[in-house]
Amino acid sequence: MKNKFLIFAVLLFLLGLSGTAFAQTEDELVEICGMIAKDATYLKDFKIRLDAGDPPPLQRFSVILKKDIKYRFSVCNSKDMEGKVILELFDNNRLIATTYVIATGKDYPYIDFTCTKTGAYHLSFKFKDGKPGLAVGLLSLVETL
């Protein structure tokens, strides 16, 4: 009886460890996203995990962008989930940049944004067609102007 309890406790501990290993997937995505961003300097990453939904659920973040700096926003999807992430950048309520252009139906792994106004901007992430997904968005610095 004592031994069975011990086995159960060890198995529970192992399950806990596998949870840690799963969490590292997001860090791996950050690394991949860093490669997508090429030689731009890493500034911040955003981890996105959303369930399926109609309308597609959103995950929002606020960022400060500074005047006369060219930024790169890159995105990277987990292969384990079907959702393809879309990043949208808003200045107040104005959509100023996105990784998915509806008119052409084209997805971009990264977009460059030349900022001319220092202030708070809003990043919104969602998965295409409201599918569930796991992704990472990366903000990096390309150059100062």
Partner: peptide, 20 residues
Amino acid sequence: DDMVQNIASPIETAAVLKGL
């Protein structure tokens, strides 16, 4: 959720200094 993520970043200012 509403908190700005990168309100102060050491890299951007240093990059501007280096760029100048």
